[in-house]
């Protein structure tokens, strides 16, 4: 091995492990370019270490994905094959700002504000990441002018977000509580509590969801609705 390939090997062994920083990656790129795409020795070194690194994944105990993961994946790809990119898939291809703009259209304006307002915060990044994932859905309630309220969730994922703006504060020692009905379930389940104003509340749900509702509940929330819901919406799957 000549000295160029010794350096190439040293850098490649670290690169496949994710251990290089930008200046060294640039150096590796420069050596690669200098040797050209047909350098058999570079190819052999790169492929060999890539295999070694990938093998490391097998040192871990396997962690099966949740039941239905493969079906969700196939639903995604077959849906895209038959109908072209869905709105959600288009969101994934654009950045946070554009994704928020889509939400703006969907929710009539105010939800977009709720997402964009904390721009640069970990919350906005998390929501932006979420929006960019396959299967993300935003279901908006019909709120009065100046108010908006929606639930952002993904089929097959338990993480969800409650997003809102302009919501009046519940009176007394009360909060809003989200309710959701998983497919096949007889009753609504509690999906998290939140207050008025601008809302970006992370929560957990079970999907698929067939209905969503909001009620006003005593502080801390309730295991079952104790008041008539102020919003109810059916979710079509």
């Amino acid at each position: 091995m000549n000295s160029d390939h010794e350096r190439f090997e040293e850098l490649t062994a670290a690169e496949v492990l994710g251990g290089l920083e930008q200046p060294e990656r640039d150096e590796l790129d420069a050596i690669t370019a200098e040797h050209g795409p047909d350098c058999a020795q570079c190819e052999e070194i790169r492929a060999g270490y890539a295999e070694t690194a990938a093998d490391l994944a097998l040192a871990l105990d396997p962690m099966p994905p949740r039941a239905g993961a493969v079906d969700r994946l196939l639903a995604e790809v077959t849906g895209s094959a038959s109908t072209g990119p869905s709105a959600t898939r288009r969101w994934r291809r654009v950045g946070l700002a554009a994704a928020a703009a889509v939400v703006l259209l969907v929710a009539g304006g105010a939800i977009g504000y709720a997402i964009r307002r904390p721009s640069g915060t970990s919350t906005s990044r998390a929501i932006g990441d979420y929006l960019n994932r396959p299967g993300a859905r935003l279901v908006a309630f019909q709120a009065p002018n100046g108010q908006s309220l929606a639930v952002l969730f993904r089929s097959g994922q338990s993480r969800a977000w409650i997003l809102g703006s302009g919501l009046p504060q519940p009176t007394g020692d009360h909060v809003y509580e989200l309710w959701y009905q998983p497919a096949g379930a007889q009753n609504m389940r509690p999906g998290g509590t939140f207050g008025g104003g601008t809302v970006t509340t992370a929560t957990t749900v079970s999907t698929p969801i067939t209905a969503l509702a909001i009620s006003v509940e005593p502080h801390g929330g309730s295991p079952q609705p104790t008041t008539k819901p102020i919003y109810v919406i059916t979710v079509h799957n």
Partner: peptide, 8 residues
Amino acid sequence: YASAATAL
């Protein structure tokens, strides 16, 4: 590969 990939 999903189980090994998820573990990783």
